[in-house]
Design a protein around this nucleic acid. Structure first.
Length: 582
RNA sequence: GCGCCAGUAGCUCAGUUGGAUAGAGCAUGUGACUUCUAAUCACAGGGCCGAGGGUUCGAAUCCUUCCUGGCGCGCCA
């Protein structure tokens, strides 16, 4: 609708140019926005205000000219000029009602499939397989997942890439410990059940025992040269670690599968080629024995050029090299039109550098968009990165356990007679929803404070509130005992709150497009919360099943149905499941 | 030292890229359950948008100088 109004205004500007009210070379910047205040209509534009200066006229006079030129339109009931020269648009009620009917008839709920589908590669989650997944992986995993789902819903082809850390020197000490345990006849898979502890043991031995450290380094070299024994140990380790990750993904309802795994080691063979190709394009410089790329835009202290080192003086490669290889693979093999990285915002400098080098080296097509979708740190009550009470990094699995436990407790409090199995199920869904909603609801790029108390408080803007809102709609249909497929009749927007609800409902598409464009699921959370809260208010004020007339009852049932569908779909795009009762 | 990000109600956070009277939730206070789930709803109080200066019809938003906090900055990832 916003786009539609903008379109008309653009035509109108041309008309004004023909009339020589405006200079011909002018391309005005203006906005069409939803209003905050109902008295300002449903939409408003500042066009007349921005035109005042170039037209050398009073903004209100220009506004009048604009209004006079606006075509008669079924969607707009009336137009008003207000304040210093804003033009306010009031939506036609029957038009709004028809939009609701159309959305109900549409499996996409009124959200158009994109006319220009893109292949979008999304790099997210990407844990280090040497350790267990911890709280630091939460945001990348669930924000990336939500954006992936949203892009798919809009009709794009999404390729998920889980760029796991499965290579590097730390694997030497892990393999050394595996080897040692095997010699003493211990069952390795058992020992690896607690990855975190395994890593700690290996690290400790590495620090304490020179023999162990030597063996570790030796194993790294053997692994890199493709030694069979080493590769087998390494593969065994990876399998176990990956299955830990998959377990977390499944619990969290994250749409990552083994198919998405394409780790650092996948690029090993490519690394020398990256370096030689950089050399061919003349970008490579040797500096103090290391192979570097220097770009003029990247300066360090005292204006000294800042290199991107792609090969160390000992011949080893670095993460920059791997990232370049990955970027090229995504461009050439995966045919990406757009590449998104959901990685800690602290790496933003690295990514700027990486993208610039990749462009210069033509590893990326000029038309390919690449964006670092950085996210902030999860903080504890003390304002420092979130840790457990004992001061160690919080394992994701423990976090999920805790959330489920707390959620179950509160659900049990509300439903003293509920069967244990149902409590488990509901507690699980509510717990996960709480964690995910609390995280996804915050602006991606800033740090946020993690608090179980806030997110499982069950009051206000929380995951549980969203699920509760959904169950209330669901219960209406249970009670009514009607098949939603048989609902028909016109939508009647008699009450102000009904109008408001309809207005929200038809906004879904606009929100999803913005989420997809900016990689910001918190906009969807905010929208769904407003929808749920508008619905709660409607639910209070407008009896549905006992509505005064049959027409009103039918209309309200349809408003309920669309609310339910948008809530369910919207939450699904966030990776949050719904419940029919709770 | 250089660079990036942040500073909005007691707390946690929004603020549609410069728009109309800066908004939510929690917490506090008041009212509403014989009526579709009160995990709810309605209402109230609460603000020098870190500070100063500038740009203009109009600034939380843009520019500038400071203050405070966080994070980066050549062979880790």
């Amino acid at each position: 609708m916003k786009d539609y109004v903008s379109e008309q205004l653009l035509q109108l500007i041309e008309e004004l140019k023909n009339q020589e009210v405006l200079p011909a070379d002018l391309t005005p910047r203006f906005t069409v926005e939803r209003t905050k205040d109902k008295s300002h209509g449903d939409f408003a534009t500042n066009l007349a205000l921005t035109l005042a200066k170039p037209a050398k006229a009073n903004p209100r006079q220009i506004a009048e000219k604009i209004v006079a030129l606006l075509p008669q339109d079924g969607a707009i009931e009336r137009v008003e000029i207000a304040g210093p020269g804003f033009i306010n648009f009031f939506l036609d009620e029957s038009w709004l009602a028809r939009q609701v009917s159309a959305a109900l008839a549409d499996p996409q709920l009124g959200v158009p499939i994109t006319k220009r589908p893109k292949t979008v590669v999304i790099d997210y989650s990407s844990p280090n397989l040497a350790k267990e997944m911890h709280v630091g992986h939460l945001r990348s995993t669930i924000i990336g997942d939500a954006v992936a789902r949203t892009l798919e819903f809009l009709g794009h082809k999404v390729i998920r890439q889980n760029h796991v850390g499965d290579w590097g020197t730390q694997f030497g000490m892990l393999l050394a410990l595996m080897e040692q345990l095997r010699q003493t006849g211990r069952e390795i898979s058992m020992e690896l059940a607690d990855l975190e502890n395994f890593y700690r043991q290996a690290k400790q031995q590495f620090d304490d025992s020179p023999d162990f450290a030597t063996r570790s380094r030796q194993l790294v070299v053997e692994l890199q040269s493709g030694d069979k024994h080493c590769l087998a140990l390494w593969q065994e380790f990876l399998n176990i670690s990956l299955s830990h990750c998959q377990k977390i993904y499944d619990r969290l309802g994250v749409g990552l599968t083994p198919e998405a795994i394409y780790g650092e080691s996948a690029y090993n063979a490519d690394l020398p080629l990256v370096v030689s190709d950089l050399e061919k394009t003349g970008l490579l410089t040797e500096d103090q024995g290391a192979k570097c790329v220097f770009l003029d835009e990247f300066k360090g202290q005292d204006d000294t050029p800042l290199p991107m080192i792609v090969q160390k003086k000992d011949g080893g490669y670095l993460y920059s090299t791997t990232d370049l290889a990955a970027l090229r693979y995504r461009q050439n093999q995966l045919k990406a039109d757009r590449i998104l990285y959901f990685v800690d915002v602290r790496q933003s400098h690295h990514f700027r550098h990486l993208f610039a080098v990749a462009r210069k080296a033509e590893f990326l097509a000029a038309t390919t968009e690449v964006e670092h979708m950085g996210f902030g740190t999860v903080m504890g009550d003390d304002g420092k990165p979130f840790k457990t009470r004992s001061g160690s990094v919080a394992k994701l699995a423990d976090l999920v356990d805790e959330a489920e436990k707390r959620a179950r407790l509160l659900v049990a409090e509300k439903n003293p007679d509920m069967a244990a199995s149902e409590l488990d199920e509901i507690g699980r869904i509510v717990g996960i929803a709480s964690i995910k909603y609390a995280d996804l609801g915050k602006n991606r790029s800033s740090d946020y404070l993690f608090s179980f108390d806030n997110m499982i408080s069950f009051e206000g803007d929380t995951g549980p509130y969203m699920l509760y809102a959904y169950t209330r709609v669901a219960s209406i249909f249970r009670k009514a005992e009607i098949d939603e497929k048989n609902l028909s009749g016109d939508i009647i927007l008699g009450e102000e709150i009904e109008r408001e609800l309809a207005n929200r409902q038809i906004q879904f598409a606009e929100i999803l497009n913005r989420v997809a464009e900016r990689g910001t699921p918190h906009l969807l959370c905010g929208y769904l919360y407003e929808l749920a809260s508008t619905f709660s208010s409607f639910y209070k004020n407008c009896p549905v099943l006992s509505a005064e007339t049959e027409e009103s009852r039918n209309s309200r049932l349809q408003l309920c149905l669309l609310t339910a569908r948008i809530l369910k779909q919207g939450l699904a795009l966030l990776g949050i499941g719904t419940l029919e009762r709770m």
